[in-house]
Amino acid sequence: MLVLSLKNISNNMTKEELIIKLKVIVKPYVQDEQAFKNLSEETDFIKDLKINSANLVDVVLDVEDEFDIEIDNDSMEKMLSVKAAIEIIEEKLSA
């Protein structure tokens, strides 16, 4: 029971850390500063942050560099929100 709860805590922290790292990555491409300030898991890169779709590939490439992972086409297809990006990074890191 104790082990389980500790594991949960550490997973949660990792997700927080991932969001902080992701925030640094997307910052140069953001065109809605207010949405950027309120960034959460639910934030959409295009609808909320107004990132130019041509810059979405820069976000993907920056994520690959930062986490030393490879994002395949199928994963990239889903990478439209903070939540999707976190899921993909977690999946690739644990692979």
Partner: peptide, 15 residues
Amino acid sequence: AKTQSNWQRKGFLEK
């Protein structure tokens, strides 16, 4: 487009 994106960046075309 000249300043917003760098098409010569590694991986940009391939992706």
